[in-house]
Design a protein around this nucleic acid. Structure first.
Lengths: 337, 337
DNA sequence: CTGAAAGCGCTAACAG
DNA sequence: CTGTTAGCGCTTTCAG
């Protein structure tokens, strides 16, 4: 049924299977008429090439990998979704997109040039480094998104988290906030570090010395945001604004505040980071920083596919601008410090 | 470098490549000592089998497909995430998971038994039917999740949306609500239909005739929930509760209410459906219906893999119980009708 | 423009 | 227990 081969077609067309192969691949060597004839027979037989055979001889797998640090924790569903969409928009037919968490691999044995024409790593942590190096060393076309890495010959597209955090903090300062707390991201994630740095820089630029007391640990998820906010609200000297390193944590923070009768933004301002799908829709709508995940993924996939198909090279590093999204969860304060 | 073949190993071990093949595949025919020797040589050479060659001869692709109706609209990121996690937990190594939106296919040519050892369809709409039939007809091991289908020989695991909606509506009635509006899901999605049916059934069981005026169209997303709620609030005779066919729409509804000074749940109750990740964390925490997407996906993947590997068959249909999750967005009303 | 022959890397009879 | 041989379906020299 679906096991028609080029030999079957060859027999029916009265030509050799070589000719069929060439015709189906649009070789210019073939007489247009026989080519048409062969194609129509193939069509009527509902022929589908055996990609395993093609792969073997052409040394291409038609597989692209999209790998995340983890699919268990720290990866928000919105992040996954945006990345998947961005990549899928580009690759259309012609490639299979294989999605996986790097921490699901027990060994990297299955990761090699024969099995992957190219790999996109959505990296969120330095824990990916061994995987990235493994792939690079196996000479698999490779592009690393989201996390900055220092490797030659590996493409790297990242959002400018630090300047995003800087601008957000700056904005909070402009709104008159002086004591600004931060709820940090998952320890070990480069993005957590970059966001905190941006926050610290902005504070210092404004001549404000950061206070350790106002730096809370978080895990990027709702629950940790909630917990951190509880601790913040218990502070004797409560800050007037809280910069959360993710929207998920900002949600948790808002929730914790609401449960304690503290109103956002009237009693305390809360800012997020990520601009997840729902941030615009919750109450209060979240003031946050947008990362261009989907655009970045699209650009990455385009680069990768172009390289695989045309061996076309270009600049290797690029930063994607983040964007301040001002909504309702941050409020200027009138009274001085 | 990564191009070591069994022939290279054979040469070094002083045996035939057949022996190497057998040894590496743990054939009982091989002398344990030579087997060990061969394996250690393979290890030191960092040998990786060429899966394209294996695929060709074994007629297995080592690919599993996870297909969604669409990756563009109507699929929430939480849904995608839960499904992906559930499946990935099961397949571990040994299979590549290929993720795709069915509506991204321009033709199904690439979908065949040579390219997929099995397929999981996360179906959300009857629009998938052609795809499902195509795959079934090509004799690809197939399992359809989430949407009920009528086809023999195709496994089908679905959440009981209708009874979930029924129980939610029943709960609203128990809370004293008489006029209950519904914001419906995306037209054409089977789940939209099932949820509405559950709602209607419960109403009728309570002797209440459903009112057309209280049935609002929606699209499963935030924005449509918002819009629908605006229309509900403009009604002369406003209902005391709103059953939203998705949490995303419930969020939109809450937002619309808040903006108009209508408090949830004090002035109006809002119920959702899905129990997305954030529904517990927003204010007010959403009363909703949980669908066991991740469990369902896990069960589906297990069935599929078992079938592929052991040709083991079992019952073909199964319904997964949905669960009422009572939180804060619905409030009993004391005053009578 | 077309065909014969070889081979991609691996597994599977079939003989020993 | 091991080797010889053939072949999976396709592309690619190399000759016409």
């Amino acid at each position: 049924m679906s096991d028609v081969t080029i030999k079957d077609i060859a027999r029916m067309a009265g030509v050799s299977h070589t000719t069929v192969s060439r015709a189906l691949n649009d070789s210019p060597l073939i007489n247009p008429e026989t080519k048409e004839r062969i194609k129509s027979i193939a069509g009527s037989l509902n022929y589908t090439p055996n990609y395993n055979a093609k792969s073997l001889v052409l040394d291409r797998s038609y597989n692209l990998g999209l790998f995340f640090t983890t699919l268990h924790q720290g990866t928000s569903s919105g992040f996954l979704y945006a990345a998947l969409r961005g990549v899928n928009e580009v690759i259309k037919d012609g490639y299979n997109l294989i999605v996986r968490g790097i921490d699901d691999y027990t060994s990297f044995h299955h990761v090699n040039r024969k099995s992957f024409d190219g790999i996109i790593v959505m990296s969120q942590s330095a824990a990916d480094q061994p995987f990235i190096e493994y792939a690079a060393q196996r000479a698999i076309p490779l592009i690393v998104l989201n996390r900055q890495i220092e490797m030659d010959g590996v493409w790297n597209l990242v959002p400018d988290d630090q300047s995003g955090a800087y601008r957000m903090t700056e904005y909070l300062l402009q709104c008159g906030h002086r004591r600004i707390a931060i709820i940090e991201g998952k320890p070990g994630f480069k993005s957590s570090h970059a966001r905190k740095e941006g926050y610290l820089d902005a504070l210092r630029s404004a001549g404000i010395e950061p206070e350790d007391e106002l730096c809370m640990r978080g895990e990027y998820d709702f629950e940790s945001g909630y917990q951190a906010m509880v601790r913040i609200l218990e502070l004797k000297d409560r800050p007037s604004a809280v910069f959360c390193s993710s929207d998920d944590m900002a949600l948790g923070a808002v929730k914790a505040a609401a449960e304690r009768g503290v109103r956002v933004p009237d009693d305390i301002s809360v800012a997020g980071f990520d601009d997840t799908l729902y941030s615009a829709f919750i109450t209060p709508a979240l003031t946050t920083v947008r990362r261009p995940i989907e655009e970045m993924s699209r650009a990455g996939a385009e680069k990768l596919v172009a390289f695989i198909e045309k061996k076309h090279v270009e600049d290797h590093k690029r930063m994607f601008r983040t964007e301040l999204v001002i909504r309702d969860s941050v409020k200027p304060i009138s009274e001085g410090d």
